[in-house]
Design a protein around this nucleic acid. Structure first.
Length: 489
RNA sequence: GUCCCCAUCGUCUAGUCCGGUCUAGGACACCUCCCUUUCACGGAGGUGACCCGGGUUCAAAUCCCGGUGGGGACGCCA
């Protein structure tokens, strides 16, 4: 790869919606690329669509990017030498380049109405031709223009395409791409109110901001020839392009709202860890060339090269993301997981304020092996919270099935607990030995299961070896009483 | 419809550039077994793919052509 120029990449979201999983992945690739080559990662807000741009979306995008750990070096909040980083604040610049285009005679005013344009489009479609602007206003005389203006018709500015030779460019991921300019049609670069449109603003900014590599979604391949034409006409130095394949839903269609969570925020509230999502996203369309899958950010940065990007689109598989998230929940620092779990615990109605931090840590430590996502933390840990203690129907049935034995076990256990005073890991072993010698029940399974059912109210859960010490003697005894009374034993 | 892009297990992918070592490797999911008082974790196995048709070649997942399929674009959105 040509790395003679300083590496500068950018992510250019438009604040017209929340950050999409695909956008996050594109941002991530840009970020990894910039870090790998020790370059600069720029965040540019493309807010030229005044009607749809909302501050709320911009805030969310910034927040989500930060949550993912994709930090930018230049952009909003972090001003740099190539600012401003909002297109709405760069209008003078576009005006300057527009003037240049006018002087070169490469643009013209178009007075066609949206209805006329749509009719033209439909007509071309019907005749099996490429729908494009045919150039009706290309050669308007001054008088014609005046007449149109007198009618009160607003006008847009179109870029005049005179090229006949194929527009070719080398895509760093896809290789050589060639497009016949005749399919393009003169495209609009400025709206009636003078605001620039995407293809114009983006290429001006990419060049002005000295972007070395434009890494963006595949949907932009068709914009590239237009941008190249504009840049060449303006004498601007072009960046290199790399078009990343898009992410598809399981039904092979474009990922959208009807497929459930699509914005990054959705994944966060569903209990996915930023590191896990980052890891998963990095592996969607890229791989390190060996069989590693769980990779730290450091490793991702070290190994990230465009040469290893996959060209075909990838289907987003939430099952694999869940698996990876589980891996991160199990293997991250316990304190981190405890901290991340707090909001989910609260959301499940489990109050942790009056609980000892050490106790909570123990709880999370014992149940984290069961978790795929953090929003399951409540349902797996509530058995440790006395205020949530209830006997599940199936637990009741099981206990009732062996009424006599259960009563014997519980009474013996209660006595033993009262005598023990406290209980820890070793104490549990001793307790079980004593229990075994005190009761007539010899079935190991029945012995353990009765205790589990009576103390947790559930059929399943972590080993009793850890459950009992975490509950403590008081809680255990309290639960024995409740269970007994509920079963009228 | 037109143009552009893509095509290996259900899914993510290695292998394709430089054809033989690929009876196609790994991971998720699924199934079986082991561990285990239960769940989960963990461990060991298993099912499962080169889109189709031609061509080049001693030899094709790999190169070429055609077809088919999928996706993207065709905005006074980005």
């Amino acid at each position: 790869m040509n790395t003679s120029k300083p590496i500068r990449v950018r992510m250019a979201p438009s604040p017209t919606g929340y950050l999409h999983i695909g956008g996050a992945r594109t941002a991530l690739f840009n970020y990894l690329f910039s870090r790998h080559y020790k370059g600069t990662f720029i965040l540019r807000i493309e807010d030229t669509d005044q009607e749809r741009s909302k501050e709320e979306f911009e805030d969310a995008i910034l927040q989500d990017l930060r949550w993912l750990g994709v930090e930018w070096d230049e952009g909003p909040i972090k001003e740099g030498a190539y600012g401003p980083y909002y297109q709405s604040e760069r209008l003078d610049l576009y005006r300057k380049y527009l003037k240049k285009l006018q002087e070169l005679g490469k643009v013209y005013a178009c007075y066609c109405t949206p209805e006329e344009l749509e009719a033209e489009r439909q007509d071309l479609l019907k005749r099996h031709k490429t729908p494009k602007y045919l150039g009706k206003c290309r050669n308007l005389t001054e008088q014609e223009k005046k007449a149109l203006e007198a009618q009160g018709r607003p006008s847009v500015i179109r870029f005049r395409i005179d090229e006949k030779d194929p527009i070719q460019f080398h895509d760093l991921i896809r290789g050589d791409i060639s497009v016949d300019p005749s399919i393009l049609g003169d495209f609009v670069i400025c709206k009636p109110d003078g605001w620039p449109l995407y293809n114009f603003a983006a290429v001006v900014d990419d060049c002005e901001m000295k972007i070395s590599h434009v890494i963006r979604g595949e949907e932009h391949i068709s914009n590239t020839p237009r941008q190249i034409l504009l840049a060449k006409t303006l004498g601007l130095e072009l960046p290199q392009y790399a078009h990343v394949s898009i992410i598809l839903a399981p039904d092979r269609s474009k990922l959208s709202k009807r497929h459930g969570a699509t914005s990054l925020g959705d994944y966060r509230t569903q209990g996915f860890l930023a590191d896990a999502l980052k890891n998963y996203l990095a592996l969607l369309g890229w791989n390190p060339g060996d069989e590693r899958e769980i990779m730290s950010e450091k490793e991702l940065i070290q190994d990230f090269v465009l040469e290893r990007m996959v060209k075909s689109p990838a289907i987003f598989d939430v099952e694999k993301l869940k698996w990876m998230n589980g891996m991160y929940i199990r293997n991250s620092a316990l304190d981190t997981i405890v901290h991340e779990s707090l909001p989910f615990l609260e959301a499940s109605g489990l109050s942790v304020k009056d609980k000892h931090p050490h106790w909570l840590k123990k709880v999370i430590e014992t149940i984290r092996g069961n978790l795929e996502t953090l929003n399951q933390v409540g349902s797996f840990s509530e058995l440790f919270f006395d205020e949530k203690f209830t006997l599940a129907e199936e637990a009741k049935t099981q206990l009732l099935k062996n009424k006599k034995e259960v009563l014997e076990v519980l009474n013996a256990l209660d006595t033993l607990l009262a005598k023990a005073g406290t209980i820890d890991l070793e104490g549990f072993q001793k307790l079980q030995e004593d229990l075994k010698s005190k009761v007539t029940v010899s079935d190991k399974k029945l012995l353990f299961q009765s205790q589990r059912l009576a103390l947790t109210g559930r059929l399943k859960g972590p080993e009793m070896t850890v459950v009992m010490p975490i509950l403590g003697v008081d809680s255990c005894r309290k639960r024995i009483q409740i269970t007994k009374s509920k079963l009228s034993l």
